[in-house]
Amino acid sequence: FDIYVVTADYLPLGAEQDAITLREGQYVEVLDAAHPLRWLVRTKPTKSSPSRQGWVSPAYLDRRL
């Protein structure tokens, strides 16, 4: 999967189903980028939180090589 970094805090609107909150600087794996406005991502697990999966706007993501 492609690795992206979150460029700004992402707080989903209440109406968005299956969306997750992301923090600036967080790394995520993009699982599904087929839709231009919503990408399915999975967060990297940390010592304090397990990995999470949900939909985010790709405008908040920047690809890492």
Rank of each mutant, 00 (worst) to 15 (best):
F1I: 08
F1A: 08
F1P: 10
D2Q: 12
D2P: 15
D2I: 11
D2V: 11
I3Y: 10
I3H: 05
I3G: 04
I3K: 04
Y4F: 10
Y4L: 03
Y4R: 03
Y4K: 01
V5G: 02
V5A: 04
V5D: 01
V5I: 14
V5T: 05
V5C: 07
V6N: 00
V6A: 07
V6P: 00
V6L: 04
V6T: 04
V6F: 02
V6M: 03
V6H: 00
T7E: 02
T7G: 04
T7L: 12
T7K: 11
A8P: 02
A8I: 08
A8F: 07
A8L: 08
D9F: 04
D9T: 06
D9K: 06
D9R: 05
D9P: 05
D9S: 06
D9N: 09
Y10M: 04
L11K: 12
L11S: 12
L11C: 13
L11Q: 12
L11E: 14
L11N: 14
L11G: 08
L11M: 12
P12G: 07
P12M: 04
P12E: 06
L13Q: 12
L13R: 11
L13I: 11
L13C: 12
G14A: 15
G14P: 15
G14Q: 13
A15G: 14
A15P: 11
A15F: 13
A15C: 14
A15I: 12
E16T: 08
E16V: 08
E16Q: 09
E16A: 09
E16H: 09
E16L: 09
Q17G: 11
Q17W: 13
Q17E: 14
Q17A: 13
Q17V: 14
Q17N: 12
D18C: 10
D18L: 06
D18A: 06
D18T: 06
D18G: 14
D18S: 07
D18N: 09
D18E: 09
A19Y: 13
A19R: 08
A19L: 07
A19M: 10
A19V: 08
I20A: 03
I20V: 07
I20T: 03
I20P: 04
I20Y: 06
T21P: 14
T21L: 11
T21G: 08
T21E: 14
T21N: 09
L22F: 04
L22E: 00
L22T: 01
L22V: 05
R23L: 12
R23G: 04
R23W: 13
R23P: 03
E24G: 07
E24W: 09
E24M: 15
E24P: 10
E24Q: 15
E24A: 15
G25T: 02
G25I: 01
G25V: 01
G25L: 02
G25N: 03
G25H: 03
G25K: 02
Q26C: 05
Q26A: 06
Q26H: 04
Q26W: 11
Q26M: 12
Q26Y: 03
Q26I: 05
Y27H: 09
Y27E: 14
Y27C: 10
Y27Q: 09
Y27P: 03
Y27R: 06
V28Y: 01
V28K: 00
V28S: 00
V28G: 00
V28Q: 00
E29N: 04
E29P: 00
E29Y: 14
E29V: 10
E29M: 11
V30D: 00
V30Q: 01
V30L: 09
L31R: 02
L31K: 02
L31P: 00
L31V: 07
L31T: 02
L31W: 03
D32H: 06
D32E: 07
D32L: 07
D32A: 05
D32Q: 06
D32M: 06
A33H: 08
A33L: 05
A33K: 15
A34T: 15
A34G: 11
A34K: 13
H35D: 15
H35Y: 08
H35G: 10
H35C: 09
P36F: 04
P36G: 06
P36Y: 04
P36K: 07
P36L: 05
L37E: 14
L37S: 11
R38A: 06
R38C: 11
R38N: 04
R38I: 06
W39K: 00
W39Q: 00
W39N: 00
W39I: 01
W39G: 00
W39D: 00
L40D: 00
L40P: 00
L40K: 04
L40Q: 03
L40N: 02
V41G: 00
V41A: 01
V41T: 01
V41K: 01
V41D: 00
V41E: 01
V41L: 01
R42Y: 02
R42V: 04
R42P: 00
T43C: 06
T43H: 03
T43Y: 06
T43P: 02
K44D: 04
K44H: 12
K44E: 09
K44T: 12
K44N: 07
K44Y: 15
K44G: 06
P45M: 07
P45R: 08
T46A: 06
T46F: 08
T46S: 11
T46R: 05
T46V: 05
K47N: 13
K47E: 14
K47F: 11
S48R: 08
S48G: 14
S48L: 12
S48C: 12
S48D: 15
S49A: 12
S49Y: 10
S49F: 11
S49L: 11
S49E: 15
S49W: 09
P50T: 07
P50E: 09
P50L: 07
P50H: 06
P50R: 06
P50W: 04
S51Q: 08
S51G: 09
S51K: 04
S51T: 09
S51R: 06
R52N: 08
R52F: 10
R52C: 07
R52M: 14
R52Q: 14
Q53G: 03
Q53E: 12
Q53D: 06
Q53H: 06
Q53T: 15
G54Q: 04
G54V: 11
G54W: 05
G54C: 06
G54F: 11
G54I: 10
W55S: 02
W55C: 04
W55D: 01
W55V: 03
W55I: 03
V56K: 00
V56P: 00
V56R: 00
V56C: 07
V56S: 01
V56L: 04
S57G: 03
S57Y: 04
S57I: 05
S57V: 05
P58M: 04
P58V: 05
P58S: 08
P58N: 04
A59Y: 08
A59F: 09
A59M: 12
A59E: 12
A59K: 11
Y60K: 03
Y60M: 05
Y60E: 02
Y60S: 04
Y60Q: 03
Y60C: 05
L61T: 00
L61P: 00
L61E: 01
D62P: 02
D62G: 13
D62S: 15
D62K: 15
R63W: 11
R63A: 09
R64W: 15
R64E: 11
R64D: 13
R64C: 15
R64L: 15
L65T: 14
L65S: 13
